[in-house]
Nucleic acid binder design. Structure first.
Lengths: 217, 217
DNA sequence: GTCTATAGCATGATAGAC
DNA sequence: GTCTATCATGCTATAGAC
């Protein structure tokens, strides 16, 4: 059927408008108009704008993170006691999101997710705790794969990788490209491979001999 | 004197509140209250909220990009015809921003800048064209340093590096750190070195043998 | 569950005295 | 340049008919 539940239509409209204009700049009027629903429907179905926002995230975030955990479980079961191959770990982490980008609607969500990091801290905090397990598990896996890296080095490198990933999700246009109109439409799979190559090299980089005396306070 | 121009106080207040709560969520009332100025003063000094926003960016962005160009000019003059060393180029690009982070007020600006990428497209477009020259110059320098990389590979890798940088600027708390309270307060200089190590390795990574047939449409 | 109507408030902007 | 007062608009949320 081409007209899903009002509830679903509201979520779709909200997600689309959040990506287009930002969360704050999107009013309930915009949402209900776009969803061809009544102004009061948001409050009926979700209670408030805040709860609508959370519902938009909750809808896709839980399955996404479950899948990331599932893939890591599988890899670790296969590998037994040996540490995972770096690229394999990164692929398990990234693949679920890049697969979401195949579908238009969940692609919007990935974009929204990429922007979450720079949202107002109240919202960010609320959503971020859903990443706790994923973060803990993957960080531990990376520690086993890169045992020579101290926790500070690894933390920063993971931070940088998250940044590269979030930016790739959040910014669809490639600003860094000088000439404008060429065939830059790589497949998602190929973009993911580029990102894995970049991040794996960054994570594996040798630690510079002397990292200033400001670690270990 | 400890009370600068109203104009300056408005810019300071706006910048601070933009970082704290986001641009959209900050009202002119918030700004004028924080600046201990009159509600009408924003419209007197800037004409509108939009122009205030642009002024906040313009104040620091122009000197920042001028400095990036100046450093690159200097390096290229010294190097003559030989391509620059990768780490040196990255440092010239990053140093001006990391130096801004030493001072509290311009640190706020750097944070705002990191978030610019994920702002609503109208504002982004408006500010982004100020980066054109910096982008063009540094991209060309990187091409000379990494001649073996095709333009597509280099573009993506630069994209990832920009993401890592923006995330580092925009997200002060390090989310990726598992244990919470340790001495993670590295100096700006040291953080920059971590980022340079990561990005340089990512940029230098060997190109995987076969990058799927989807380039060259 | 859906709709209209509206309360209650905050917003950006401006007019006009000083 | 600074202030007060105010306008018109848009917002979230709710009450109550259907």
């Amino acid at each position: 059927m081409n007209t899903p539940d009002t509830r679903e239509r509201l979520l779709d409209a909200a997600q689309k408008l959040f990506v287009e204009h930002g969360i704050d700049a999107t009013s309930l009027r915009n949402v209900t108009t776009d969803a061809e629903a009544n102004l009061a429907s948001v409050n009926y179905h979700f209670g408030s704008k805040d709860e609508l926002i959370q519902a938009v995230f909750a809808r896709h975030l839980e399955p996404l993170n479950k899948e990331r955990i599932r893939l890591l479980d599988e890899l670790e079961r296969e590998a037994g006691d040996t540490p995972l191959y770096l690229e394999t770990t990164l692929e398990a982490f990234l693949k679920p999101t890049f697969e979401m980008m195949q579908n238009q609607k969940s692609r919007e969500f990935v974009c929204l997710l990429g922007r979450l990091f720079t949202e107002s801290s109240e919202l960010k905090m609320l959503i971020m705790h859903q990443f706790q397990e994923v973060q803990k598990r993957y960080f531990a896996a990376l520690q086993r794969t890169l045992p020579h890296l101290g926790i500070i080095d690894l933390s920063w490198r993971v931070h940088f990788m998250i940044g590269a990933m979030a930016h790739t999700f959040a910014v669809p246009e490639k600003l860094s490209i000088p000439s404008s109109s060429e065939a830059y439409n790589l497949t998602e799979e190929s973009i993911m491979q580029h990102l894995i190559t970049f991040a794996a090299a960054g994570l594996r980089a040798p630690v510079p001999s002397q990292t200033n005396g400001d670690n270990q306070k």
